[in-house]
């Protein structure tokens, strides 16, 4: 019989990790839901954002949490510009081209990172990195607790924006009915770029929440993006609550998988659950039936 403390710690760790996965996946699912493309640049843009947080800290002494507004705005602007200036221009509205363009962007960013930072792993030393809180016998690192709370808060705010604001309504309108959107005077290209920008801004936030306890290297995005793709498909492509639920679920799978099967086999748990869910719900947990 397993120690209940161990189970409790597995649950806590899984949820904490899952919230970050959810935040990365939210951006991916938003971009997929509106632009109907799979953003292959997602992982490398997360990596770029993490280097951004690293530089802000090491060069200017800006605390990663204080950097959050800067990174969110900066990544939004970068995402908006990439979509409007590069992806839409280079793709001529063809989905397969968009795919290749985002893949190309990721290759460029990763190689630039290798050029400027080499392959070394880098961390930032914040004084509170090892602060922790004991909850029923399990020590929880405070930065991870902050990351969890902030990720849920950001997901909530994003949901409100999509549901309640005019921009959110326009985003949902463009996702399903482009022609109709043009005829009510929505600038579809602008809304595409806003959606892409918001999706990338989520990565800026995720980077700030990750850096106090994580390290950054040029391929750090790969680990996250593979899981984020899994989360998006598991939750239902384009579904917001699905990404949140999927993220938490995958976090738990990984954590319990590690607990029962050992660290290196732990990831199998993710894909077992993934396959089982898709067998019974091919469009994902909360995906709308096609």
């Amino acid at each position: 019989m397993l120690d209940p403390i161990l189970l409790w710690s597995g649950l806590v760790n899984g949820l904490l990790q899952g919230a970050i996965y959810a935040l990365v996946a939210l951006g991916l699912t938003l971009i997929y839901g509106v632009l109907h493309i799979i953003n292959f640049a997602h992982g490398s843009l997360l990596m770029l954002a993490m280097y951004g947080v690293f530089l802000l800290f090491s060069q200017f002494g800006i605390d990663p949490y204080a950097a959050l507004p800067i990174m969110v705005v900066g990544m939004f602007v970068l995402g908006y510009g990439l979509q409007r200036g590069l992806i839409s221009r280079a793709s001529h509205g063809r989905d397969e081209n968009i795919l290749l363009v985002t893949l190309g962007i990721s290759i460029v960013i990763e190689n630039l990172a290798l050029f400027f930072f080499q392959g070394d792993t880098r961390t930032i030393d914040v004084p509170y990195a090892f602060d922790s809180l004991e909850v029923f016998g399990v020590f929880i690192a405070i930065p991870r607790l902050i990351a969890f709370a902030a990720a849920l808060l950001i997901a909530g705010l994003l949901w409100l924006m999509i549901q309640r604001s005019d921009v959110g309504r326009a985003i949902r309108a463009v996702a399903k009915e482009k022609q109709g959107a043009r005829l009510v005077g929505i600038n579809v290209e602008h809304i595409y770029a806003v959606s892409y920008g918001v999706g990338i801004a989520c990565l800026g936030a995720a980077a700030c929440l990750l850096m106090p306890t994580y390290l950054v290297y040029p391929t750090v995005g790969h680990a996250f993006v593979l899981i984020a793709f899994t989360v998006v498909v598991l939750g239902g492509m384009g579904s917001f609550p699905g990404a949140l639920l999927g993220g938490l679920l995958i976090g738990l799978c990984e954590s319990f998988g590690g607990l029962f099967l050992g660290e290196s086999f732990g990831q199998i748990g993710i894909f077992l659950v993934f396959i089982v869910v898709l067998l019974f719900r091919p469009s994902g947990l909360l995906g709308s039936r096609v």
């Binding site: 309504r169 949902r172 399903k176 959107a181 009510v184 005077g185 929505i186």
Partner: peptide, 20 residues
């Protein structure tokens, strides 16, 4: 028609006044 199928009737009407 080109209405927005995923939006409510109210939201569809509200978007009619998006630009004007």
């Amino acid at each position: 028609r080109r209405v927005f199928p995923n939006l409510t009737v109210r939201e569809n009407l509200e978007l009619g006044a998006y630009r004007r």
